[in-house]
Amino acid sequence: GTEIELESKNGQREHYTATSEDEARKIIEKAVRRGIKRIELRGASEQLIRDMQEIAKQIGLQYRTDGSL
């Protein structure tokens, strides 16, 4: 699965493990709508990382991946 670590603007951290790319995408989209400061992805697919970079650029988000592409 993909591990997703979120940090909201007030510094609250949340951790999710998505079993599918679809689920990961839903978690990320929800977080973005809620207003999130930072997202870290571990074990994400190349496609998901590309999507994440696109989203991050659009809304000026900090993100990090573990680089295991």
Rank of each mutant, 00 (worst) to 15 (best):
Q62A: 04
G43R: 05
E5T: 14
M52A: 05
T2A: 07
L69Y: 11
E3M: 08
K57C: 11
S8I: 13
T17H: 14
A24D: 00
G11Q: 02
H15I: 11
L41E: 00
A24N: 00
R25V: 04
S20P: 02
Y63F: 15
S8G: 12
E3Q: 10
M52H: 00
D66C: 15
T2H: 04
E29W: 10
L48T: 05
L69M: 10
G1Q: 12
S20G: 06
I28S: 00
E29Y: 10
E46R: 06
E40K: 10
L69V: 12
T2N: 01
G11H: 03
A56E: 03
G1T: 14
Q58G: 07
S20Q: 04
G11A: 05
L61G: 05
T2C: 13
A31K: 03
I49G: 03
A24T: 03
G11F: 01
I49R: 07
Y16C: 11
Q53A: 11
Q53C: 12
I55M: 10
R64H: 15
G43D: 05
T19P: 06
G35V: 01
I27H: 02
K57Q: 09
A18M: 07
E23R: 03
V32W: 03
A24P: 00
T65K: 06
G60H: 07
G67I: 11
G35Y: 02
K9R: 10
D22F: 07
G67W: 00
D66H: 05
Q62H: 15
I36H: 01
D22Y: 07
A24H: 00
R38E: 04
D22W: 07
T17L: 12
H15C: 13
E23Q: 08
A44E: 01
I28D: 00
N10V: 06
I49A: 08
I27W: 07
G60L: 08
G1K: 12
Y16H: 09
L69F: 15
R38Y: 14
N10A: 10
I55N: 01
R50S: 11
A18F: 15
D22I: 12
L61F: 06
Y16N: 01
E54D: 09
T17E: 09
Y63K: 15
I28R: 00
E29N: 07
S68E: 12
E29I: 08
D51A: 12
I59S: 15
G11N: 04
V32C: 10
L6Y: 07
Q58D: 11
K26N: 10
G67E: 11
G35L: 03
K30C: 12
H15A: 06
S20W: 03
L6F: 11
E23A: 06
A18I: 10
H15N: 11
K57D: 09
S68H: 07
E40F: 10
T2E: 02
E21I: 10
E3F: 11
K30E: 14
Y63N: 15
Q47N: 09
D22Q: 11
L48S: 01
S20R: 03
E7P: 01
Q62G: 04
L48N: 01
A18R: 03
R50G: 04
Q62E: 15
G1P: 13
G60M: 05
L41C: 04
L6S: 01
R13N: 06
R64S: 15
S8H: 14
D51F: 13
A56M: 04
R13E: 05
I59G: 14
D51S: 09
A56Q: 03
A31F: 05
T2S: 04
Q58N: 08
N10S: 12
G43W: 06
A56T: 03
E3W: 11
I59M: 15
I4R: 01
E5I: 13
D22E: 14
T19K: 09
R64Q: 15
E21T: 08
E14Y: 07
E14C: 15
L41I: 12
A24G: 02
G35Q: 05
E5R: 13
R42H: 09
A44M: 04
A18C: 13
I36W: 01
N10Q: 07
I49K: 08
I28G: 00
D51E: 08
E29K: 04
G67L: 05
L69T: 05
E21S: 08
H15S: 09
N10Y: 07
G43A: 04
L69A: 06
I55R: 03
I39G: 00
E14T: 07
R50H: 09
I59Y: 15
K9D: 13
T17F: 14
G43I: 01
D51L: 14
I39H: 00
H15F: 13
I39V: 07
K37Q: 12
N10H: 08
E29H: 09
R34N: 14
T65S: 14
S45T: 06
K9W: 11
E14N: 06
E23L: 05
I36S: 03
Q47A: 12
L6T: 10
G35H: 06
E23N: 05
Q58H: 08
G43Q: 05
S45K: 01
A24F: 09
E46F: 02
R64V: 15
R42K: 11
I28K: 00
G67R: 02
L41S: 01
Q53T: 09
Q12F: 11
R33L: 12
H15V: 10
G11C: 13
S45M: 04
E23H: 06
I49W: 06
H15Y: 14
G1R: 11
T19Q: 12
T2F: 13
K26M: 09
E46N: 07
A18Q: 03
L41W: 01
T2Y: 11
E46S: 11
E21L: 11
G43Y: 08
R13G: 02
D22K: 09
I39E: 00
K30P: 01
A31M: 06
T17Y: 13
N10C: 14
I39Y: 00
Q58Y: 03
S45P: 06
S20K: 05
E54F: 07
I4W: 01
G60D: 14
A56C: 10
G67Q: 05
L6Q: 02
S45W: 03
S8F: 14
I36E: 01
T17Q: 08
